[in-house]
Every structure is written in C-alpha cells, then in structure tokens.
Simulated assay, not measured.
Amino acid sequence: MDNINLKVKYLRDVNLSTYTYTKTGGNVSLMFFPKNITELKQLIIWLREKQLDYITLSGMTNIAVASGNLNFVVVNMSEYNESDPEWDGTKFLKVSASYEMKKLAVWTFNRDLKGLAWMEGIPGTVGAGIYMHAGFLLGQDMQTYLVDAQYLDLDDMQVKTISNQDLLFRYRYSKFQDMNAIILHGRFLVSKIPDDWKKPLRRIKYKKRIQEYHLRRRNNQPLNFPSAGTVFVPPYPFHVGGMLRELNLVGYQIGGAKISEKSPGFIIGVNSMSGEDYYQLVLYIQKEIKKKYNLDLIPEVRLIGFE
C-alpha cells in the first residue's frame, strides 16, 4: 500500500519478533501508533475502507505469534495518550491504557498513593492488564482495584465506559475478550498515605511491599529467557507445574521452545524459538495432560496467526 493519507505514525515491513516478549512473530506490512482518540477513530475507519485485517496490541508481553508474512496489520496502542495518570485528589486515579503497570506502581508510591503496589511484579500495560485481568492473588488484581474502564466501541465508534462488575472478571478473563472494543483508560481506587507522624514509617513499609513483589517475580520466574509468562489457566485444584513434574516433562523441548526448569508453568525460548515451536509445545503439553489426567488445559497466552 503506497499511499497512506493519514496523520498517524506508522512503520512499514515490521518484524514482530522485535516487539514481543517471546521474540516470536513474522512480518506485518504496517504497524500504526495512534496517539489520541481522533487518530484512533480515523485509523479504524481507514482500515475498514481499505478492507485490511488488523489486530490491536500494546506491550506484547503475553503473546506468541506465527512466523512468515502475516495477513494482518497492527494497531499498536503503546503510544496512546502518553500522559501521566490523573488523580482526582480523593480516591480515583485515571490511567491511560498504554501506561506500564510496573511504572504505575512506582508513580503512585512517589506521590504517596497506595493500592497498586502489586503492579510492580507484572510486565505489560494497564490496557493489557485489564483485558487479561492481571494480578497475583485474590485482592491483588484488577478486579479489586479497577473502578471502571473507558473504551472505543468498534461497532458504533463511540467512546463508552464499563463498570468493574460488568466486566465479569475471573481468572485471566474480562468481558473485553468477547467485545469488539479497544481499551482507552482505566480508573482505579487508590488511597493517600496519611500525612501524620507515622507517614515515614508507612512509606518504608509500602516501599518494602513493592520490593517484595519485584523479588517474588525475579526469584520465581525465568526472566533471563524470552517467555509470555504463565502459559495455561490453572485447572483448579490441579497445578500445571506439578503435573509436568509428575510426567517428567520439565525441560522438555520442541525446537527452541522449552518447559522451564525454574518455573514449569512457563515456556521459555532457547536457540531462537519460533512461534511455531511455542505453539507445538503448547499442543504437546495439552495432549499429554489430557492423556494422563483427562484435563483440558486452556492457554492464557494469546496465540496469534496459527491454525
């Protein structure tokens, strides 16, 4: 496509492996970076007029993508509304979907706001976090702190707001996964660290909590390898890592994709893992778990461009 009559930043002939945390992905002909709602609407309308298939991505922390020439273009939301969060002075904090969760944990601490320390341990953007219901344990997740989310409804091209309870959160799921929409902002519940004589002590305790989330992730996850985090939704009350140990599959490898020894719930990339390596290992794990335990594992990692 030679003539792109749009005031939207874009790149041609992009290899997605340079963006994804798994280092997987083939080539897309175009990647767009809308910066505000006007640019985003114009872009979506233009893509429809040109009959171009597109996929909306941002931090690309939880995806594995097929190789080769891909038959879609990318709307990259990582530069959307690059402004600082907006605190209303009481208890609500409005944050752009493009804002990184780890960065948000530090931003709130530096302004004596508490509630979002758990985000320090999670890579990716706020929008992706809402979409996938990011979090650690109950009470340390989107469901607990998100008040509502603003989004662009792609059916009627109107900006709308959906409340927490209407997002039907469950493990790694929000209603956005079944909506034709792009998340724009999230509004979170935060509280101010009281400005009294105990404030220095409270700040020390809160900073220690942030550090604990950081260390927990560093100590328990294979951060020195490409990965998309935990691969499967836990089949409660079973534990995927425990089942893979019982099956002696820890360290099992297909191509450059390997079941992590440090955290068997992760597939890590070694020796230039391709998206196909990752995908085939996902299928193999599903097959072996089904055969041994009669359980159907559901991936929480987004698998893009495969069958």
Rank of each mutant, 00 (worst) to 15 (best):
Q286N: 08
V231Q: 01
K192C: 07
Y19M: 01
G127A: 07
L16N: 02
G251I: 10
D141E: 13
R302M: 10
F176M: 07
P299L: 15
K258F: 00
M157I: 15
M1R: 08
M77L: 06
P299Y: 10
V73H: 02
S260Y: 04
V270I: 15
S98M: 03
Y252C: 06
M77N: 01
K199Y: 08
E39A: 08
N220E: 12
L138W: 04
L297P: 09
S98F: 02
L116H: 10
F169I: 11
W46I: 07
G89A: 13
I267F: 04
W118F: 15
E39F: 05
A64P: 02
L57N: 00
K160W: 08
W46L: 04
L189T: 11
K102C: 06
V190H: 06
P226Y: 03
G241I: 11
N62P: 01
R170M: 09
L152N: 03
E261M: 07
V159Q: 14
D13W: 02
I267E: 00
P34A: 10
R209A: 14
V190Y: 06
Y99L: 12
Y252F: 15
D88P: 05
T230E: 05
Y252K: 15
L116A: 12
A128Y: 02
D156E: 14
N62E: 03
Q177M: 14
I4T: 07
G186T: 11
G251H: 05
K175Q: 09
V240G: 03
M101Q: 15
N81R: 14
